[in-house]
Design a protein around this nucleic acid. Structure first.
Lengths: 344, 344
DNA sequence: GACTCCTCCTTAATCAATTAAGACCTTAAT
DNA sequence: ATTAAGGTCTTAATTGATTAAGGAGGAGTC
């Protein structure tokens, strides 16, 4: 059932039928009505979108590539915020959002994606999917990581944001810090991470965020290698709880814990409560992203996930127009009630 | 830059180049290597996916149509669970998931979506988007609402689930119930809903869920029109809080409140705490979906959102094979610590 | 009457691939 | 030497649309 079917039925040309659907001004009203009538009668579904896409040279969709499986992506409030922003931009432009799986199994999805542009979020350095995305020679923006010179990048100043979090507790007087981070590596490791693991992370944003912690500590004369560092494989409250237990059972007990995500920080709060520690009197906790921090009164670094998403969408929908290469979004230390000077 | 460009460069036919990419066995190794080399050299991005789609007659994507704007959809844990399930199914099949906006502005997105099938979730009765979806004559499954005879439908037995929730508190001895529901209408109304508004809802699933409440009440001899019924326009904890305040400030005060979603129930708990009411000693609260209930110890009706998503994906990827018309998923009353016999 | 100008429709090129069928050239078998 | 079989590549039809350019006919103007 194509345009031709209807054209044949009415004894007109295929072009005429096409005009009936897409350019009413090119046709007499009577004929147009008759064409639409016959189309309806025959159950014609309208011009084939794939064929239109081919002819018009536009797909009407943005491709989105997330870290890991989608299931994990949607467990993270920060990712959801970003996604909402991107969806808003797509909605405004009337284009769809094609969510692409990119597991190990199916490599063809990137190659076969009918999209006008790609948005890539949080891929490890040198991930093969990134190569495939660039091979498509479509507009691409990368969010958070990895930064690829020559391609638009959106994200915050990670070292500065990390340093701001660390400096905050240091300035409150803390000297015994602990760190819990997720998303450094993807070997599923949960436990203490030595310097090599920390610096060898394939995830640029997290690596840089961590380097901000380190820098602030070193500037304050705190021995960084002596700061206990717990690594998590999953971003969940339970994971945070586990890290919290591990860190808080050490001797001497840290008086401040820095975390990588708000969700993790909530888990640390759970662990503190379990051990009978009062926050912030006995322990200070800092989250990250301000995605799930407000209700719990968590001190955190706010980053505007929705705006990043919207801006990413806007840039992609610009087509081939010149794009800024690095768009650094602001971050902000939000001080709530989970941080205070250390116990004396 | 097409297959032809490369063919011309090498003096071979376009077909040969196509085979080099998609059917290596049809070509000598040497020529194939040369072709891929030249393609690489020229920066050819690989066979155009749109053209492939057209020729092969498959889009490699599933279209997903949600209620309202995406921003709201992703604020609802139940919707996210469903989405994860659908994404898993798509991932397994190596197809993408095309999220379609369907605001008032852009009607073309459904018509223009390059997809093999549609999944529609929670649309009000007679929504124009539904007509457009069916006009595409592609496989469609509808989730939750509205049930359209002749098309596959996935969801729970809403009246039974609603009745189970109501019967639970009734059997505990409660006689003074209150109800808070979201998603009945889309006129933005927040406030008391009379019988006409309740029954006139355009959202079939919610209408039927409510009818389950009513039926259980009537069976127990409780005067349904006398049950205070508060309607919300948005599914948020704040909305639930507002409904909770309204319901709990009535005289006589209800001893049990039934809600439409877990998120709403959490808000009711907030309101109860504010008023100094102990749950479950002074007040029983029942949620719905078991999407955000566990942490708060909420009694709720569990429905398997992820499985529904996976099953929806599986059905859609079946192609034109025969599909069951109505797939009713189980629901289960999960009793936690938010319900107990009423105060004596 | 000749000219121009519209309106309405058709012709045909184009978008970028896939693939069955056929042509041509080597080998191998009889 | 002839035939069959295989391997390798080409031909050409096909997928389903869009749209610039052109032609036919009627209306309006001088």
């Amino acid at each position: 059932m194509t345009l031709q079917t209807i054209a044949d039925r009415l004894g007109v040309s295929r072009a005429t039928v096409s005009y009936a659907f897409s350019r009413p001004d090119q046709l007499s009203d009577g004929l147009r009505r008759r064409i639409l009538e016959v189309a309806d009668e025959l159950g014609y579904a309208g011009p084939n979108p794939t064929a239109r896409s081919l002819r018009l040279g536009r797909a009407g969709a943005l491709g989105l590539i997330f870290t890991e499986t989608l299931a994990y992506a949607f467990a993270d409030p920060y990712a959801i915020g970003f996604f909402q922003g991107l969806a808003t931009a797509a909605e405004d432009a009337g284009v769809g959002l094609l969510i692409l799986p990119h597991g190990a199994r199916r490599r063809e999805t990137v190659k076969d994606a009918v999209v006008d542009a790609f948005c890539v979020m949080s891929l490890p350095d040198g991930h093969p999917t990134l190569t495939e995305v660039f091979a498509r020679r479509l507009p691409v923006v990368v969010v958070d990581e990895p930064y690829v010179p020559g391609h638009p990048f959106l994200g915050i100043d990670e070292p500065a944001a990390g340093a701001a979090a660390a400096r905050h507790v240091i300035e409150l007087g803390h000297r015994r810090l602990g760190v819990a981070m997720v998303g450094l590596n993807y070997d599923g490791h949960t436990g203490w991470a030595d310097q090599a693991r920390q610096e060898g992370s394939a995830f640029e944003a997290m690596r840089r965020r961590r380097s901000g912690y380190q820098q602030a500590c070193e500037q304050a004369g705190i021995d960084w290698p002596g700061v206990p560092f717990y690594e998590l494989a999953r971003n969940s409250r339970e994971a945070g709880h586990r890290a919290g237990r591990a860190l808080l059972e050490r001797e001497p007990r840290p008086t401040a814990i820095l975390t990588n995500t708000d969700v993790l920080a909530l888990g640390v709060l759970d662990a503190a409560a379990e051990l009978g520690l009062r926050v912030p009197a006995d322990l200070s906790v800092v989250g990250f992203s301000d995605s799930a921090a407000e209700k719990a009164g968590l001190t955190t670094i706010r980053q505007a996930s929705q705006e990043v998403g919207e801006e990413a969408g806007r840039l992609l929908l610009l087509g081939d127009a010149a794009k800024p290469e690095r768009l650094v979004f602001p971050h902000e230390l939000i001080i709530r009630s989970s941080t205070a000077p250390p116990p004396s």
